[in-house]
Design a protein around this nucleic acid. Structure first.
Lengths: 334, 334
DNA sequence: CGGTATCAAGATACCGATAACATTTGATGC
DNA sequence: GCATCAAATGTTATCGGTATCTTGATACCG
């Protein structure tokens, strides 16, 4: 019905060719005009821009990506098991994502969200860069994505053998800070609750141990795999049953800490008079807990932004190095 | 140096044309072979696939998207304010995302994550469909994205004026279920704590009010804007100061409920003997709370999956209608 | 006035994949 | 032996932009 040049395509709006015909110029001039290139006459440019606006022109991103050979997209691969696992129910990964998203968006990039399973799903290859999240995302996963040969940045704990860029909060420091706090309080029998098979937790434990060693103190490790209050309560009860003495608890997560506090109180001991407790993550909830919980805070948002900045740097061909974010000890009543 | 046909491109691997030359066939045959088309000889297919694998061939997604005029991508637009806002720190939106991601991935689609600000960032237009998340995402936002003319599905509360597909959990039912529970317990002076300016909360309140009205009961509304324990405690204290009697509390969020319980206990009243309390969301934490919290549970994961299925249907040109997800009342000790 | 900058716009050639149509080849049928 | 058909592969055009190289017109200079 309508002529070739003015027809609308199935997927919707007019193309540059259509606009070109409407304006009586060539495609390339339209391209330049819309790109604010100085190569077009300002008058022509405005005329074309007005026309584009009027006809609801939308740039075809796929076409541009093909020609420019870059997608302005960064794939974020998240460990998301649909189980009662930590990652999924913790609010923090979301904050991390928020930081990433904010920074990438500001730079004109988009975020392609992928779970590990779906990571093969084609689209990832089209990304200009890769961000790997999730504590499980190590070695095996890293190698898998290394093959894609894309600029890649990983969130997590660093290890000497890493060939890629790793950003993470300084878990070792987190452990050390708590240790020094306990030392200052004169505590002699500290306990660590958590699962050191996660690299991050392992680092916290190491920082804790090393800083305590300065005073010749050796902490007791209560390994617990779940990051729940129940698990924390269980750990303390178990200590009691085994008649192990303790005067300080460092839990690698706030929920564990709260559980530990409750169990400790149940045993008739006072927090913090008899036992000092420090958690990790500084959940908003912790401040309202009774007694208000002391905790180690990491700046997840900043972490996300840093991750984003690193990939962007790599994409631009600039160098980028691994980096640890500082943490801070928030002292409340425990 | 190397010949035209066998050269590697800047962005990396070989193209179909390269493979074609290596195999001594034409591009299209390669395309068919890699797509497992029945139009190629099985032998040829395997030979080409082996070749592709050996040379690390990667499909150029942009090119395919351009040609096929679809990106196999759905944009998810999330309200993500970098403030102490609810959305960002609640774990649930993440679960929603998980459900979406899982379902889309299974269908061979990718998820393009965008914040509302960045939603103009080009790439969204390339998506085949749109999912809008976040309680603030209404009317204004919806209209804005409507212009893109893409299949769109919104998470949230339905309203009669909606022209688009809305999926959400049945908040009205959630309120009604709690009301009926209170009635069964013989409660006469129920209180609702929450902020009804959020459409979802408004629905919960309405369901609550209507179901109570059957017995001629009118609940008291304690409007509180923050979704924190402190806010819940404050609400109950304020009730006490104003000498308002109450024997049941429906808090529109578990944290509010926990705060309310604590304040109630502080006043020397018993839960649940004197006052029944029900929260919303059924946080894992609620089960470990003392006393274990009763709560209304929504299946966020399922919600995400449903959202995904609806957009996919729309993308395929099939019809899709708004839908509410059932909720369940989890009774514990309160 | 010839010659060179400078500016605006066009022509052409891709980017890498795939759909639609065309061709070759060998097998089968009568 | 020739027509017919199916299988396997090839040709060509196209998706919608943009880089590169040209061209044409005007201005400027000595």
């Amino acid at each position: 019905m309508s002529k070739k040049g003015t027809r609308r395509h199935a997927s919707g709006g007019p193309t540059m060719a259509d606009l070109a015909q409407l304006a009586g110029v060539s495609k390339i001039t339209v391209s330049r005009a819309l790109g604010d290139s100085p190569l077009v006459n300002p008058e022509t440019r405005e005329r074309i821009q007005a026309l584009a606006c009027e006809h609801g022109y939308k740039l075809n991103i796929s076409a541009r990506n093909l020609r420019l050979r870059r997608s302005h997209t960064v794939a974020v691969i998240v460990e998301m098991k649909p189980s009662t696992d930590r990652t999924m129910f913790d609010p923090y990964p979301l904050v991390l994502l928020g930081g990433i998203s904010q920074e990438l968006t500001a730079a004109g990039y988009s975020v392609l969200l992928t779970t590990r399973q779906g990571a093969s799903a084609a689209a990832v290859q089209a990304a200009d860069g890769l961000i790997l999240l999730g504590q499980g995302a190590h070695q095996d996963a890293v190698r898998r994505f290394d093959k894609l040969n894309l600029p890649m940045v990983v969130w997590g704990a660093q290890s000497a053998s890493d060939t890629h860029v790793v950003v993470g909060s300084d878990n070792r420091l987190g452990g050390a800070v708590v240790a020094r706090h306990f030392i200052a309080l004169g505590r002699r029998r500290p306990v660590f609750i958590g699962n050191p098979s996660h690299p991050e937790i392992f680092e916290r434990l190491n920082g804790f141990i090393d800083a305590l060693a300065v005073r010749g103190i050796k902490p007791l490790l209560m390994r617990r795999d779940e990051f729940t209050m129940d698990s924390g309560m269980d750990a303390v009860r178990s200590l009691n049953e085994r008649k192990v003495g303790f005067d300080a608890i460092f839990a690698c997560n706030d929920l564990l800490a709260m559980g530990a506090i409750r169990a400790t109180l149940d045993l008739g001991r006072s927090v913090p008079a008899d036992v000092s407790v420090v958690g990790y993550d500084d959940m908003p909830l912790g401040a309202s807990f009774l007694p208000p919980l002391s905790s180690v805070r990491q700046d997840w948002q900043e972490g996300g932004m840093l991750l984003a900045r690193k990939v962007l740097a790599l994409i631009e061909g600039e160098p980028a190095s691994s980096e640890s974010l500082p943490v801070s000890l928030i002292l409340r009543s425990t």
